[in-house]
């Protein structure tokens, strides 16, 4: 039911963990529906220097989280903002239709983390 790429990211997820004192943290989903994704960003200038994630959820939830971290590492914030959930799924070679809506939230978590970064910046200014 999952592509080889999804299984690869599920088995060997990239960038698992936390960043202490992260510049931006974003969390989406809830335990009730069975998926929670949290993304941590380390930002220098306007570049994402490091990114980590923690996810509670099914295979697709873990794989999309891992994939999105790989896609944004070293990218600018503007580049990261245009990454969509659909693009993450596509990069994984597709997801089963049932997973497209419930477990494909990694880009949302990324955008939430960027928003958190912007909010913190505003407070600093």
């Amino acid at each position: 039911m999952y592509t080889e790429k999804v299984m690869d990211h599920f088995t060997n997820p990239r960038n698992v963990g936390e960043i202490e004192n992260a510049d931006g943290v974003g969390e989406v989903g809830n335990a009730k529906c069975g998926d929670i994704m949290r993304i941590y960003l380390d930002i220098e200038g306007d570049t994402i220097k490091d990114v980590k994630f923690k996810t509670f959820g099914c295979g697709a939830a873990v794989a999309t989280s891992s994939m999105v971290t790989e896609m944004v590492k070293g990218k600018t914030i503007d580049e990261a903002l245009v990454i969509s959930n659909a693009a993450v799924a596509e990069a994984l070679g597709g997801l089963p239709p049932a997973k497209m809506h419930c477990s494909n939230l990694a880009a949302d978590a990324l955008h939430a983390a960027i928003k958190d970064y912007h909010d913190k910046q505003q407070i600093k200014e």
Binding site: M7, F56, A61
Partner: peptide
């Protein structure tokens, strides 16, 4: 607790 069933099933299946 703290983990999800499908992830457990996939891991066992492997």
């Amino acid at each position: 607790q703290f983990v999800e069933g499908e992830s457990l099933l996939l891991s066992l299946d492997m």
